[in-house]
Design a protein around this nucleic acid. Structure first.
Length: 495
DNA sequence: TCTCAACAGA
């Protein structure tokens, strides 16, 4: 397969939600596509493995079988190479299956490149292919490019369905473009762009809850209850979870009862949300009641239920009880995962019991559970809080050696540890490194750096950084000013 | 091909 440079240039057009007016999309004509990675991805395919040229019936059947058996990206790309060689072309549904699997592997950019190549081959794509492409863009946080595919959709005379709009709505919420998502939803309703389904409502309700607007999510739930598209268990779960996260557990319990009265049976997700909400408020007696109730209703606690309990007990410092829950779950044949162990590790870290935390971390390896970035970060944070910065640096090196890419939380934690150990220049080097590797400092990073400089008698330097931040971060959080002012006040008192 | 849940950094 040869990927043409400049492929698709001019075929795609960009639009954004703002471009949608009076029922028509207006497009700007620059190409949103970048091609630099194509050769890298395809260069990785072993030619020896992919050299089969296939055109007979057996091969077509074999490919259909292999489509159900893709284990990783290399597999998928290799299979695609073979699929692309077959003439006449395989049915577009087979290409859709491949694309879905690549999206499922969270390889969104590869899915986009494959979609472009499928179009380039001249395969007649269908609505499903385009939805997968739009979804890939949205999941890669490039919803505007998703709109460009939607524009192409319209140009081909296709009417996008609710599925297409649901994908775009979710993309906008993911990118925190709440107003645009709400605007699109309104247009969908008022202009009848498509028939709204339960997923459309679910997407909007979830987006609103995640954006902290649970009240509006409830309003929409009430609209659904009165209308013809009735809320299902997932919708109720979303709202109940939103309320629990807002610490409005009594409203959540009320909705739980209401739902029950409407004949909608709760599931394990409902109970997990409520148990989590009650745990966060230390309402242990009610946690026990709900836990018993769910088992009585034959809704069995899963790994999330137990991990939630472990985490809550750990946060209360009840390590023995947390260990008991871990054993209980194993007795009940629920296999603990990386989250269960990470929660336990964090509990030991909070107590400063680093040997035990490290033991938990090591025990994961013996159980064939791979650590993730979070488990490393928890351990690094534990060592930093104990002022054992060398141990924290050792974990950082260990994670690099094992092929994990530190994220902004890793760097922010490490630089805070370095500042607290009065190793200012090392901390600032980490701050630079974070940006050199292409990560963007976030709120916590800036707080840590400003605070670190102040606590090390460098309030003036913190002020300079604040000035520099004003040029690049818009608008600045009030906390930054508070930290620097506090730094200056403490410096004055010190003098 | 589209909607829900648990662990880290302040």
């Amino acid at each position: 397969m040869k990927i043409k440079k400049g492929f698709f240039l001019g075929q795609f057009i960009t639009s954004s939600p703002n471009c949608y007016e009076s029922g028509k999309f207006y497009f700007s004509c620059h190409s949103p596509l970048s091609f630099f990675s194509v050769s890298r991805y395809y260069g990785a395919i072993s030619v020896a493995n992919c050299s089969r040229t296939v055109s007979n019936c057996d091969s077509r059947e074999k490919i259909k079988l292999e489509l159900g058996n893709i284990s990783g990206l290399d597999d998928a790309l290799c299979l695609y190479e073979n699929m692309a060689r077959i003439r006449p072309f395989l049915c577009v549904k087979q290409f859709n299956r491949l694309l879905s699997r690549v999206v499922n592997l969270k390889e969104y950019k590869s899915a986009i490149y494959l979609f472009k190549d499928i179009c380039d081959l001249g395969i007649s794509v269908d609505e499903c292919t385009m939805n997968i492409a739009i979804n890939s863009y949205c999941l890669a946080n490039q919803t505007d490019y998703g709109f460009s595919v939607l524009g192409w959709f319209f140009k081909r005379g296709c009417a996008p369905s609710a599925i297409t709009f649901n994908i775009i709505l979710k993309g906008l919420f993911r990118e925190n473009r709440i107003t645009e998502a709400q605007e699109l939803f309104r247009k969908m309703v008022r202009r009848g762009l498509c028939e709204l389904n339960v997923v459309t409502y679910g997407t909007v309700i979830n987006g609103l809850c995640k954006a902290g607007n649970t009240a509006m999510a409830i309003e929409l739930l009430r609209v659904m209850e009165k209308g013809s598209c009735k809320p299902d268990i997932q919708i109720y779960n979303t709202v109940i979870d939103g309320l629990c996260k807002d610490k409005m557990i009594d409203s959540a319990l009320k909705l739980f009862d209401e739902m029950f009265e409407k004949g909608i049976a709760p599931d394990v997700v409902t109970y997990n949300a409520l148990i989590c909400g009650l745990c966060n408020l230390s309402r242990w007696r009610e946690v026990k009641i709900l836990f018993k109730e769910m088992i009585d209703c034959k809704i069995y606690p899963n790994v999330m239920t137990f991990s939630t309990l472990i985490d809550a007990l750990c946060k209360e410092g009840l390590m023995d009880e947390a260990e008991d829950v871990l054993h209980l779950m194993m007795e009940r044949n629920v296999v603990p995962n990386v989250v269960s162990y990470s929660a336990l590790m964090d509990g030991y870290c909070l107590q400063g019991r680093m040997t035990e935390a490290r033991n938990v971390f090591d025990s994961m390896a013996s159980k064939n559970i791979a650590p993730d970035i979070r488990s490393f970060n928890i351990l690094i944070n534990g060592y930093c809080k104990k002022m054992k910065i060398d141990d924290a640096m050792h974990i950082l090196r260990e994670m690099l050696r094992k092929g994990f890419k530190p994220d902004v939380a890793t760097y922010s934690t490490i630089l805070q540890g370095l500042f607290r150990s009065c190793r200012c220049s090392a901390a600032l080097e980490i701050f630079d490194e974070l940006q050199v590797v292409g990560l963007k400092p976030n709120f916590y990073t800036y707080c840590n750096v400003l605070d670190g400089l102040c606590m090390n008698g460098q309030a003036e330097r913190a002020l300079l950084l604040l000035d520099a931040m004003e040029q690049i971060v818009e608008p600045l959080h009030i906390a930054y000013y508070n930290i620097v002012m506090d730094g200056f006040c403490k410096a004055e008192n010190f003098i």
